[in-house]
Design a protein around this nucleic acid. Structure first.
Lengths: 213, 213
DNA sequence: CCTAGAACATGAGTACGGCTCATGTTATTT
DNA sequence: AAATAACATGAGCCGTACTCATGTTCTAGG
């Protein structure tokens, strides 16, 4: 059992320029290797070798292998939120379908574009089983999208909505994973189907939140 | 990269009684350990020790660690299909909601009852990344449920329905995982929400398949 | 410019896990 | 009884995650 509180975390954040570059190289190498060999076959030695950094240095930054992958996931998460926020603010869709459209499209684009994104998504897959300290990365995405949804649809931003968005996100994530498992470019039928699931569910729920609340 | 065709498979099926018992003990020990230490921390040595079987024997049955876990997943899958089929045949629900109810409830019951079910589900999580040979276990569940759905709703059993059921299953799986991540007994609100997603989506899709096809 | 202390660098070495294989023993068939 | 197939065993090989003792470079205060 893993009782260590520092497991899967960052150990040191670089303050000097050289080590900041090394950190970036490590994350890039990690992403590349994830695409090439997959999650299980990924080795820290190879990541270090490819980043042209000794292993010792890798372990100065990350407490362990999970920490490395977690950092990559965090980087993906930031980029995704950045892009979705930008597009939503610019296009200001006024119904649920519009939000769904933008969000799913942006996710698909990133899966096609960003190295390693398909394997780590927003959080390491085979992570420590139960009771992780509420630090689920999908929860962060949900939080942000919840605010945007409330603002755009006029629904009260409460616990009810929280759950609905969380559930919707989980569905989107899994269906899109299936879409890219089926076709490396993302099976178009499944991507369309993903939007349908979200539309059906969200419209039903938002409606009942509006009339019933 | 993994080019080996025999990876993740069974090596020998027991024909004598003693080794059949040992195989069962290995799977039971594996399930227990998955619950206790999780996927990553699981070691074949410990599985063997707990099953009171030498490691060599473990590797007579399974080509590798993945094969062991895959066999456990297959056992879970069989049990699940058995139970769902039995209940559907007995209760003969006539609308989509009825099918959803039965299927989700049975899944929840198994999650609460069957050791290790929560970790492996129907297929190893951190499995080899791309292009697995169409042998996705969730696909098997989908296939079976598709037949049942077609029979009960009168929709034509074709590719369209195939996709819909596949997508629904993927959503159910992920929302229920979230439900049990949140609460070891399965968060009731999320379980209810899982049924809502399925109802909304399936009703919309089945309707359009009936009128449009 | 000097110097103390912080940040950083390094890679041989330790611990341990996956898996093999040579050498048996037991069951089944002929 | 002999031949063959099925099963049993565990020391040990190889490779991976991660450490740590020792050395080097930066940077701030005087």
């Amino acid at each position: 059992m893993n009782q260590d509180r520092t497991a899967g975390t960052m150990r040191r954040r670089p303050v000097q320029k050289r080590s900041a570059e090394r950190l970036k190289r490590l994350l890039d190498a990690c992403a590349e290797l994830l695409d090439e060999v997959g999650y299980i076959a990924l080795t820290t030695k190879e990541v270090a070798r490819r980043a042209e950094v000794p292993i010792g240095t890798l372990y100065q930054f990350f407490s362990d292998k999970e920490g490395l992958i977690g950092a990559l996931a965090a980087r993906n998460l930031d980029a995704f939120l950045e892009r979705v926020s930008a597009r939503l603010e610019h296009e200001k869709p006024e119904d649920v379908s519009g939000i769904v459209e933008v969000t799913v499209d942006e996710f698909v684009t990133m899966r096609r574009t960003i190295t390693g994104f398909g394997v780590v998504d927003f959080g390491a897959e085979g992570r420590d089983h139960t009771l992780d300290p509420a630090l689920d990365n999908n929860a962060a995405v949900a939080g942000r999208l919840r605010g945007l949804t409330a603002a755009l649809t006029g629904v009260r931003d409460d616990t009810e909505l929280e759950i609905v968005v969380r559930v919707a996100l989980e569905c989107a994530d899994s269906v899109l994973k299936l879409a890219f498992r089926t076709d490396p470019q993302g099976d178009p039928r499944l991507i369309a189907e993903c939007k349908r699931v979200l539309d059906s569910y969200l419209n039903d729920q938002i409606r009942s939140l509006t009339t019933g609340g």
